[in-house]
């Protein structure tokens, strides 16, 4: 009976998030426009400027658009993870987060459900993006579209947990703009999303190391390999460990006994 309660609550949270996303057309479109602009404009312009050697998982020379696609998938999930936490800051300010927090289930479970819901939304966005990219001749092997699903789940959870952690520290919406500048952009640009590691090493060793240890890079590599039917164990372990660390810290952050909640004016 208790298990059924957990199941119903989790499904309720996921359903609410998906429904809100689907009905908020502007959010749906803007979530797609961002990576598509990068793909159609930025990547097309950069194609000539950047030469790419053959590196795994690719077995042949590829266009820059093909290289950048997993990075843009990561970008969708990164923005979505941050947007979910933005909505949590908003929810907390507006009070609807309170309704979730006073329901008779453990807080870690509620946060995990919220995280799964956000990840579900990001996966939906990614598949729509991949469908559009397919018509733009960026086509992975068909199995890749299946293999990428578990990779997306893990990367989405990791990036969502990071957003959750940040939201536990943020008291007001206004502070979130800073997080966008100090978290999203550095994470995205200091990663393998736009350029391969070896290319970065040529210009700066420091940048190379930063990008290498950036969890976002590992998530992008996990997605990149999965999309071509390959399993990158290093990226998997790194992303998984990052998820556990972020999630644990977020749960502590939201725990009324230990975290930031009592320090804040609002819950």
């Amino acid at each position: 009976m208790r298990l059924l309660h957990y199941w119903r609550a989790m499904w309720g949270i996921i359903w609410r998030e998906l429904w809100r996303f689907v009905t908020q057309r502007e959010r749906f479109i803007s979530a797609l426009v961002r990576p598509l602009v990068w793909l159609f404009v930025f990547a097309a312009g950069f194609r000539a400027a950047l030469g790419l050697a053959i590196t795994p998982p690719y077995e042949t020379y590829i266009l820059y658009e093909v290289y950048i696609t997993p990075g843009l998938i990561g970008m969708i999930q990164l923005f979505n993870g941050m947007q979910s936490s933005l909505s949590m800051v908003y929810d907390r300010e507006m009070g609807s987060m309170r309704i979730l927090m006073v329901c008779p289930l453990p807080r870690w479970f509620l946060l995990l459900s919220k995280l799964l819901a956000g990840t579900g939304v990001s996966i939906l966005q990614v598949y729509v993006f991949l469908a559009i990219a397919w018509f733009y001749d960026i086509q992975a092997p068909w199995q890749g579209y299946l293999w990428v699903l578990p990779a997306l789940l893990l990367s989405g959870l990791m990036l969502g947990a990071l957003g959750l952690l940040l939201s536990s520290f943020i008291k007001q919406l206004e502070n979130f703009a800073g997080v966008m500048n100090f978290v999203i952009f550095p994470m995205f640009f200091m990663s393998t999303a736009l350029y391969p590691l070896w290319k970065m090493k040529e210009s700066s060793t420091l940048l190379y190391h930063l990008a290498h240890y950036n969890p976002f890079s590992q998530a992008v590599e996990l997605i990149r390999f999965a999309l071509y039917g390959q399993f990158n164990s290093q990226a998997f372990i790194y992303t998984f460990v990052a998820f556990i660390v972020f999630m644990t810290a977020a749960i502590i952050g939201y725990n009324p006994s230990k975290g930031m909640m009592t320090r804040k004016g609002g819950a």
């Binding site: 059924l4 309660h5 957990y6 119903r8 609550a9 499904w11 309720g12 949270i13 359903w15 609410r16 429904w19 809100r20 009905t23 908020q24 507006m94 009070g95 609807s96 309170r98 309704i99 979730l100 329901c103 008779p104 289930l105």
Partner: peptide
């Protein structure tokens, strides 16, 4: 709560169903 905690973009029924799900009904 003092501030409204309903989801404005959902219907009355959807809001209430969300609550019943959280309570395992």
């Amino acid at each position: 709560f003092q501030q409204t905690t309903l989801d404005m973009d959902l219907t009355v029924l959807q809001n209430l169903r969300y609550h019943t799900a959280l309570h395992g009904m």
